[in-house]
Design a protein around this nucleic acid. Structure first.
Lengths: 181, 181
DNA sequence: GTCTATATTCTGATAGAC
DNA sequence: GTCTATCAGAATATAGAC
């Protein structure tokens, strides 16, 4: 079994995504992670510390994912688009953590660290895409397409019938110079 | 001054976007709307009723916005992309309400009505874009670019230096057959 | 390191005056 | 239609046993 600390973060992610921030109470997280509330508070001394722990995980996974984008066999764009689509996230990847963190982002001063962490993920992915696509605006365009899929993943809206990710990638290859050299 | 009912919805939207769902308590909403908690509960008998009221507003504004997309002078794509970018929302438009509703969406049964309402907004905009772009995959591609900007608006991440919306539109016009006939 | 029990604060909602 | 006063339940966090 994974360490209690990792189990707590996994449970917090799942609750944030599936039941929303209001349901991600310390009680609920502890219960889902199969530890007591006291056990949870040993690893994360407060709810803020739990959030900080999730942000640390997000940064770590973002760096790893940027590397995966760079080394993807089918090219950076295809990898990024596929992993952004609903159901396309890889286990232990950045997608799930990003979606969880999105749910606790707000416009307050306290939310500043959260927005900064999300901005770093964006910048990491953009830098990785730029290594395949030299034109900055084109790289941004490709990233935005994938981020649009991300928004669908966030809302839980399934893809429209007849409109799949591979069809989208084919259209991008047809019109945009996004092929790896 | 706007009616108390509209002020309450405005205040609820603002609190959801700027301070997150946890801070959008009945007390806080009433205070921001400059009514008492009792006054709020006269117009919206429960928190669920407040959510339902916001979803009704979302659907109304989505229908109006779909019409604005169709009749935009510069074309549907340009309008949709511009209004999706950070700071591009029009007062009383669907953007702000959509961002607020996004913050209360979750994967539970109770959140089903919320996700459905968000899906309707997506479908409304897609249908409006399709009237300009006949190719379904191309229309979807254009929508995803705008939705990617939406995600940035949601996270509050400013656009990268040197990468503006008009540059993006120029690139889209260059590579994609997205020009209005 | 992990647990139970408790203190304190805050939330949604009700009751009833005006 | 709008207000104040109040309650029952839940939330975070602390204390201290094991």
């Amino acid at each position: 079994m994974a360490s209690a600390r990792e189990r707590v973060l996994d449970a917090y992610e799942t609750l944030l995504i599936e039941h929303g921030p209001a349901s991600a109470t310390l009680d609920a997280v502890a219960s889902a992670a199969e530890v007591s509330k006291g056990g949870l508070l040993y690893h994360f001394a407060s709810k803020d510390a739990l959030v900080t722990g999730l942000l640390d995980r997000l940064r770590t996974r973002s760096a790893a994912d940027a590397n995966a984008i760079r080394t993807a066999p089918d090219g950076a764009v295809a990898y990024y688009v596929r992993t952004s689509a609903p159901g396309g996230g890889v286990p232990g990847g950045v997608t799930r953590t990003y979606l969880a963190v999105l749910r606790i982002a707000d416009g307050t001063d306290a939310g500043r660290a959260i927005r900064d962490a999300l901005a770093v993920v964006d910048a990491d992915a953009y830098a990785a895409l730029r290594e395949e696509l030299v034109d900055p605006v084109l790289a941004w365009l490709a990233q935005l397409v994938a981020d649009g899929l991300y928004l669908r993943t966030l809302t839980g809206t399934p893809l429209p019938p007849g409109l799949g990710v591979e069809k989208l990638l084919a259209q991008m290859r047809r019109y945009l110079p996004v092929e790896a050299d």
